[in-house]
Design a protein around this nucleic acid. Structure first.
Lengths: 236, 236
DNA sequence: GCTAAAAGTTAGGCCCTACTAACTTATTTT
DNA sequence: AAAATAAGTTAGTAGGGCCTAACTTTTAGC
């Protein structure tokens, strides 16, 4: 008896549990497996701590877990992760649009609020700012019923010289990076063209409108692009 | 050595700790002592649990605690309580004014958000709705620097027949009661006159504008009044 | 295929916050 | 003032969530 019971709909998750699910979702892009070490690193905790928590989450039917072989979200775990992700991103969008919250700090604030805000509040926030489809960094907002745009975009670091595209998303966790990107005006919606790429991880030169600038590959890797099919293409 | 150290400014309180401080503040009206049993009842936990927590809070310099003789807030505990109270009430006001959140549910939502929202967010909320001085139930909002209006008002249950006053505040925790008060239109700002009081805890008949209604003493006790000096007076 | 390194796990602590049961102190009643 | 009651405390337990240290399993290199 006592196979892992399926999580009941009203099962309330703790804040750390929600964080684990989010991390696992992010690592596996919704479906793939996540390694213990990766989860630990993402949550900045010791790998040993992950083992215990992962077991508890598996007992709740949120994870499929095989000792020594990482975890995957179950359907119910995926739903829970998307619920948290929706909260997070709606809150980010709301803070930014309704309260003028600076875009490099919405992430941290949302990180705490996502565990406290009710679905009703989140829905009201979303309604108030016109049901946004992406958060301030361009990340897609899951819908109430748990579907998300799972398009995978190319990073700026992977574009060949000559290629053009529109910035769709930037990574949201590093405030300093966000301030720098804003300074350079590399923001979701902006059109960029790769002018040249220096070899050996050298700088990437971009043109944006009449402006020309060059950035390092580490930064470029954090900028996702929807390619415009004019010349350049993706690169392995 | 090791007398209770004063709480450092940046000491981060857990959510339960903030709840204890709020409860103790409410019981002692900021300064008075609070009994273990009262704290326990207010937080809906066992009295035995309070002893342990109260000791920890005292160790942090937030409470003055003498075994078997209840607790009082220290100055630093009072500041912490007021900080949480400010968050709570600003959030309530914001939810109500900016998001059209129903007034019988703002309390519950704020109860969770108050532990997660940053000071910056709370200040932005307050600024956005014009620095309100009271929450939707009429409770005064502490200022950033920790001062509050501590006026004590008379409850409607204590007014004699003939007395008039303005509703300044209603108790905020019982959603059903709030819905009923709204239905009767007994809301902060409304003028009321006590027409008559039936003896033996009987109903109290009020007139409000051209409307006349009668309520029980339990409800009346939850409505605070700023008396208008025309005829009636307070009553023991 | 064996060994070394990497990845993951259990064991044993610790803190927080709650619980029940049993005991102590304070207060009230007679 | 003694006895009864109320209020408050300690003792022992539990679960969540984290840690370090030590051990096991898997993987990768030779």
């Amino acid at each position: 008896m006592s196979a892992a019971r399926e999580a009941t709909t009203t099962e309330t998750l703790t804040a750390p549990a929600e964080d684990y699910l989010k991390a696992i979702y992010a690592i596996g892009k919704g479906y793939g497996p996540a390694a213990t070490n990766e989860i630990a690193q993402r949550l900045a905790i010791a790998p040993a701590s992950v083992s215990g928590m992962v077991r508890r989450l598996a007992d709740q039917g949120l994870l499929a877990y095989e000792r020594y072989h990482g975890v995957k979200l179950t359907e119910s775990g995926r739903r829970a992760a998307l619920r948290t992700l929706r909260r997070h991103r709606v809150i980010e969008a709301y803070l930014s649009q309704a309260l003028g919250y600076p875009w490099d700090r919405v992430h941290v604030e949302a990180e705490r609020l996502e565990h406290a805000a009710s679905d009703e509040l989140v829905d009201r926030m979303a309604a108030t700012i016109g049901e946004p489809e992406v958060d301030p960094h361009g990340a897609p907002i899951p819908t109430r019923d748990g579907s998300v745009d799972e398009t995978e975009y190319t990073s700026l670091a992977q574009l060949d010289a000559g290629a053009s595209g529109v910035v769709v998303r930037v990574s949201d966790e590093d405030p300093e990076m966000l301030r720098y990107l804003a300074e350079l005006s590399i923001l979701p919606g902006k059109k960029v063209t790769v002018k040249s790429r220096a070899p050996y991880d050298g700088p990437i030169t971009l043109s944006m409108g009449r402006q020309e600038l060059s950035i390092g590959p580490a930064l470029a890797a954090n900028v996702l692009i929807a390619p415009l099919a004019d010349r350049g293409s993706r690169r392995g």
